[in-house]
Design a binder for these strands. Sequence first.
DNA 1: GTCCAGGGAATCA
DNA 2: TGATTCCATGGA
Length: 285
Amino acid sequence: MEQNMQFELNLEVETFDLIKTLECGQCFRWNKVGQDNSYIGVIKDRVLKVKQVDNMLYVCSSNYDNLENVVKEYFDLCSDYTKFENKLKKYDQHLKTALSYSSGTHILNQPLFEMIISYIISANNNIPRIKKSVEQIAKKVGKKIQFEGKEYYLFPTVDEAKKLIMDDLLECGTGFRARYLLKDIANLDDKTLKAIYAMDTQEAYKFLINMQGIGPKVADCILLFAKHKMEVFPVDTWIKRVMEKIYYGKNTDLKIIRKQAMERFGSLAGLAQQHLFINVRDGNI
DNA sequence: GTCCAGGGAATCA
DNA sequence: TGATTCCATGGA
């Protein structure tokens, strides 16, 4: 216990697995530090250091304003994941098996603008490179934060991001996605982001898909991870592979997989998708 | 050298 | 609508 004295906020958690939640590819700004399974990440307006031991979550931060609420909101600690998982287990034997490995994975509540930019970068890319690009963008135009003697950078606001020129985005390794980012950032502002927040799922989907560099999969990821729309089912190469293997057979159209999965898993499709993703990525399926 | 990465746009028919 | 092809870049 003594090693946890440095953590200022202690929260009791249930059906929550910090590492699975942070390592399942939904977020790009967390890194493992040290040997004790602590993670440091930049979220919204602050840096967090977190660590889980059994049912306790230990947190410290660069900013203690409203910390408990910020942490509970970000990690979605107030939703009943025990109930969610029980429902998923009843739907399907494959999910039941998957959940025995990935139980406690939460869907985070992440900022809309950060998700839009991050998932445009994710197209035909891999997670380490996505993380690197997002980090470099934050370093170029995001606000600098000091935490435990080191420097961190918040993800930029829209106005801060408007300072980025094409060469900046190319230097950040975004490649062919740079021109999409440039155009979308120019067309976005706080008012538009608020409007997207207020839209229902279908309306937001239509709006997002009309932006440059956003297709069905990226739009679904933004809806799931920024707007917490658990009824969407993002279909990437991994998910296509696993869905074909356990349900539909090879060469099934992406649209069919998406539609049938949303019908199969209903209001919890997005959570089901995360569990399937983790299990296929880790070689369990 | 080749293949792949949490896809999408452009261009065809 | 549906099928192909191209897109930057780095690691395996």
